[in-house]
């Protein structure tokens, strides 16, 4: 059985997230009759998410089956949680059975919740300071992201051009095409040999 503290942790995290958007609670209320079962393969944990006007409840047992069952490895659930586009399809490795619309509604609900850092810290340090602080943080995060991208590009170029440990994309593509052509020729050659053998057997 799923440890109850895991259920509590997920419930507290989801409810805190949903609390950022008051309209999300109205959506939870509308989903009151729906429920979602998450089955984490490997751990064999089952978590049941139920909805009410206060957010969600997460338990480890339920008398009736849930509206929808989502089953997969923890890694697949992690990919689902990190996916930005909540209208896009599910990551590979997840199986859904039951009313998939319930899962889609929940994903859209989570996607609608936004987190505005400036609004959050403004009561603490004032509007002006909050604006400048969030701008500075955005600049810092942007610089970090750009630096990370540049470092990744430079490292990849060094491994391709200097040490030759990695193939260039275009070279790898040419090589794959050559392999495909060779495979097709071998297949044709094999078919011709088979045909010659059949002809020889027929003449004898």
């Amino acid at each position: 059985m799923t440890p109850s503290l895991v259920c509590a942790g997920l419930e507290v995290a989801l409810n805190r997230y949903l609390q950022l958007e008051p309209a999300a609670l109205a959506d939870c209320e509308r989903m009151r009759d729906s429920s979602i079962e998450l089955h984490l393969a490997g751990f064999e944990w089952r978590l049941f998410i139920e909805f009410d006007a206060k957010g969600v409840r997460v338990g480890n047992e339920r008398a009736e089956p849930a509206s929808v069952l989502v089953s997969g490895a923890p890694r697949a659930f992690a990919k689902l949680a990190l996916k930005r586009d909540h209208d896009a399809g599910l990551p590979p490795g997840l199986e859904v059975s039951g009313d998939a619309e319930v899962l889609q509604r929940f994903r859209r609900l989570l996607g609608r919740v936004g987190f505005d850092l400036e609004e959050w810290i403004a009561p603490l340090i004032g509007d002006g300071a909050a604006h400048r602080a969030t701008q500075a943080l955005r600049s810092l995060l942007g610089w970090t992201r750009r630096s990370g991208d540049t470092l990744a590009m430079n490292t990849a170029e060094y491994l391709r051009e200097e040490t030759r440990d990695l193939a260039r994309g275009v070279d790898a593509s040419d090589w794959m095409d050559d392999v495909d052509r060779l495979r097709e020729r071998v297949d044709r050659f094999e078919a011709r040999i088979a045909q010659l053998e059949r002809n020889k057997a027929h003449k004898q």
Partner: peptide, 10 residues
């Protein structure tokens, strides 16, 4: 603290 978090008072 656990009780306070679980209670999720709004």
């Amino acid at each position: 603290r656990f009780v306070i978090d679980l209670a999720g008072v709004r």
